[in-house]
């Protein structure tokens, strides 16, 4: 199910819904798996009373991880060569996220065909929460 360079066109788009109504428990689950126990993500008392935010919010890396599923579902297993993002806005419990990969270029590096993708994840208000790029090996 890998992508073929010959079938990809600049501007091709792949989209996926990452999460609907993000739950605090999923954020806790990510804290446990990743080892990042920053109370800003799991401790409502600390985050509202000490840090001054309206509620806990997701780890940027949780959104990057969920966005990674959109990418690997598109390009196939073990195909990614680069993946990077900027965290442009916070993700809150209750958010619904949709993610898009857009083909920016299809090139060849060291004899291997690669697709370069623009990556963006937006919330239910259309605000971009993650913006970045990825690169993956594709078939001829």
């Amino acid at each position: 199910m890998a992508l073929s360079a010959s079938k990809l066109k600049v501007g091709d788009v792949h989209t996926a819904r990452l999460v609907e109504d993000l739950k605090r428990t999923q954020i806790v689950q990510y804290a446990g798996a990743s080892g990042d126990y920053n109370p800003l993500h799991t401790d409502e008392v600390f985050t509202t009373k000490v840090a001054g935010y309206p509620s806990v919010f997701a780890h940027g890396m949780l959104t990057m991880g969920m966005t990674g599923k959109m990418l690997t579902d598109y390009v196939g297993d073990a195909r990614l060569t680069k993946y990077g993002v900027r965290f442009t806005n916070q993700v809150w419990p209750g958010d619904t996220l949709d993610s898009t990969a857009t083909v920016k270029a299809v090139t060849e590096k060291d004899g291997v065909k690669v697709v370069e993708l623009d990556v963006a994840t937006v919330n239910q208000n259309g605000v971009v929460v993650v913006s970045g790029y990825a690169e993956a090996r594709v078939d001829d």
């Binding site: 920053n38 109370p39 800003l40 840090a51 940027g60 890396m61 990057m64 990077g84 965290f87």
Partner: peptide, 14 residues
């Protein structure tokens, strides 16, 4: 993180 402002993750690249 934490405190008045605190530290956050701005970018990550692999």
């Amino acid at each position: 993180g934490g405190g008045g402002g605190g530290g956050l993750h701005a970018e990550q690249h692999f």
